[in-house]
Amino acid sequence: MSNRTNGQTAPVADVQLPHVNIDDLIVCLKYYVDEENAHIRIKDLAICAACDPKPCLAFCPAHVFETDRHGRMMVGYQACIECGSCRVACPFRNVDWRLPRGGHGVAYKYG
């Protein structure tokens, strides 16, 4: 199969990626939790309190962000799968996310 551009024929890959279920991948992760230093934190809790509809409760596949019974934002960084979605999805850029210190974090295994 090929694709014509500017009078030249460019090859087109005919590849299908395998179906991947995120829940199946999360179950296979190994966590090395740094109990002394959280690698995710909320910069300003007042911003979270005023935020509506709190998209952070939906965009994190590991449900790291939750609210307590008083509506305050809590961060369970120990469950983080380091996807980085919180860095880009918070409309107020109110999440401080760093890679965990060396030796901590998620150990991924493919296959």
Rank of each mutant, 00 (worst) to 15 (best):
residue 1 M to K: 14
residue 2 S to H: 09
residue 3 N to T: 10
residue 3 N to R: 08
residue 3 N to C: 07
residue 4 R to N: 06
residue 5 T to V: 15
residue 5 T to Q: 00
residue 5 T to S: 02
residue 6 N to R: 11
residue 6 N to I: 05
residue 7 G to H: 07
residue 7 G to L: 02
residue 7 G to R: 04
residue 9 T to D: 09
residue 10 A to M: 14
residue 10 A to K: 13
residue 11 P to Q: 09
residue 12 V to R: 06
residue 14 D to R: 14
residue 15 V to M: 15
residue 15 V to D: 15
residue 17 L to S: 10
residue 19 H to C: 12
residue 20 V to L: 11
residue 21 N to R: 13
residue 21 N to V: 15
residue 22 I to Q: 12
residue 23 D to H: 10
residue 24 D to Y: 05
residue 24 D to V: 11
residue 24 D to L: 09
residue 24 D to K: 13
residue 24 D to P: 09
residue 25 L to T: 12
residue 28 C to N: 13
residue 28 C to W: 12
residue 30 K to E: 15
residue 32 Y to E: 04
residue 33 V to N: 11
residue 33 V to Q: 01
residue 33 V to K: 06
residue 33 V to P: 01
residue 34 D to M: 06
residue 35 E to A: 04
residue 37 N to F: 07
residue 38 A to S: 15
residue 39 H to S: 05
residue 40 I to A: 03
residue 41 R to L: 07
residue 41 R to D: 02
residue 41 R to Y: 01
residue 41 R to H: 07
residue 42 I to P: 00
residue 42 I to Q: 08
residue 42 I to E: 08
residue 44 D to P: 01
residue 46 A to M: 12
residue 46 A to S: 15
residue 48 C to N: 03
residue 48 C to T: 00
residue 49 A to R: 06
residue 49 A to E: 05
residue 50 A to C: 08
residue 50 A to T: 14
residue 50 A to E: 08
residue 51 C to V: 02
residue 53 P to Q: 10
residue 54 K to G: 00
residue 54 K to V: 02
residue 55 P to L: 03
residue 56 C to R: 01
residue 61 P to R: 10
residue 62 A to Q: 06
residue 62 A to S: 14
residue 62 A to P: 09
residue 65 F to M: 01
residue 67 T to W: 03
residue 68 D to V: 07
residue 68 D to I: 08
residue 69 R to W: 10
residue 70 H to N: 14
residue 70 H to L: 10
residue 71 G to L: 04
residue 72 R to E: 15
residue 73 M to N: 05
residue 74 M to L: 15
residue 74 M to W: 07
residue 74 M to V: 13
residue 74 M to F: 07
residue 74 M to C: 12
residue 75 V to T: 00
residue 76 G to W: 12
residue 78 Q to E: 06
residue 79 A to W: 05
residue 80 C to I: 14
residue 81 I to Y: 10
residue 82 E to I: 14
residue 83 C to G: 03
residue 83 C to N: 08
residue 85 S to L: 07
residue 86 C to D: 02
residue 86 C to M: 02
residue 88 V to R: 14
residue 89 A to Y: 03
residue 89 A to F: 03
residue 90 C to F: 05
residue 92 F to T: 04
residue 92 F to H: 01
residue 93 R to K: 01
residue 94 N to P: 05
residue 95 V to Q: 01
residue 95 V to R: 04
residue 95 V to K: 04
residue 96 D to Y: 02
residue 97 W to R: 03
residue 97 W to Q: 03
residue 100 P to F: 10
residue 100 P to L: 10
residue 100 P to M: 11
residue 102 G to I: 10
residue 102 G to D: 11
residue 103 G to F: 01
residue 104 H to E: 06
residue 105 G to N: 09
residue 105 G to W: 09
residue 108 Y to D: 11
residue 110 Y to W: 13
residue 110 Y to F: 15
residue 111 G to V: 07
